[in-house]
Design a protein around this nucleic acid. Structure first.
Lengths: 156, 156
DNA sequence: CTATCATGTAACATGTATAGTTACATGAAA
DNA sequence: TTTCATGTAACTATACATGTTACATGATAG
């Protein structure tokens, strides 16, 4: 591959959570999900907050509480999930100055805006083509003949 | 537009410098270029180091020293310049784990790798289509009837 | 030869964003 | 009323680009 791909892994993380949840009935506590993701329960709650607001998941407190899926997986795309995270920046690079008076800067910005804009649009388009149901189906294929993946047994 | 576009502005910055240099004969000191970019001379030297190694620019020390263009502007693309910077990450998002044992993570990574890979490839392709000469021509059009842009008078 | 200029570079400070952690309030169920 | 689980603020850790200071290296002017 080309570059490194680091930094923001919230989309990756929240999809991991959703896919786990799609494999067995809930509810799942933040702690359970956090253990499966090797992270902290508060991180789970944080990345799930936006999805709850949009009604993709539901959360309940107290005994027997936790997170449950609350949407039609075939209706929610990766782009929807991305938006639920607050649409964080997709590109790592950008213009030095957004609205420069300098004509040199304007010429540079125009050229880069074209390339960056095209790439961003394509990425959003691709994310919009993939539903959670498609991801879940792909996962089931990968699981193959094995029994239903038990989240409590999770750990590489 | 969609997202914020912040962070790494080295490509934008170094293109700004190169375009300035293409408007008049050199050499230009790091200090002159830094003033035009409203930044620090060391920052200029830093982002120019890679271009010097690839022979796109030349630097000389002492009296009358500074930076000069040392390439055919019609032969160097924005992608070449990007590579000269060390090919920093283009995308702000990535996978949580790069080589996971977990099948769930693998399914997520596969889906995202597709979308991210396509976007990254498109971006690199677009950058590869634009030469510094094309950028410089565009700039001259923007300058229109005005006199040759004097870098010493630069300042929005 | 030496003073000045300009790059080369290391080292450190700053700003910002994600990720991880602690602490505690809120509310639901046993 | 005790226990469990989420909701959230506040703080720490980490990473990276950017900004700055300091000084060595080398080239030119006198």
């Amino acid at each position: 591959m080309y570059s490194y791909m680091k930094r923001d892994s919230r989309l990756s993380g929240v999809l991991h959570v959703l896919l786990h949840m799609a494999q067995q009935p809930g509810p799942f506590t933040s702690e359970t999900l956090a253990k499966a993701m090797d992270t902290n329960p508060v991180v789970i709650r944080r990345i799930m907050a936006g999805l709850r607001e949009l009604g993709y998941v539901h959360s309940e407190r107290g005994h027997g509480g936790g997170w449950t899926l609350a949407c039609d997986l075939s209706k929610v795309t990766l782009r929807d999930v991305y938006a639920a995270l607050g649409s964080p920046s997709l590109l790592a690079m950008g213009n030095r100055t957004e609205a420069p008076g300098c004509l040199v800067e304007q010429a540079v910005n125009a050229a880069l805006a074209q390339a960056f804009g095209d790439a961003e649009a394509l990425l959003l388009s691709r994310l919009g083509e993939v539903t959670l149901a498609m991801l879940s189906d792909d996962l089931r294929k990968r699981l193959g003949s094995r029994k239903i993946h038990d989240i409590s047994a999770h750990r590489a």
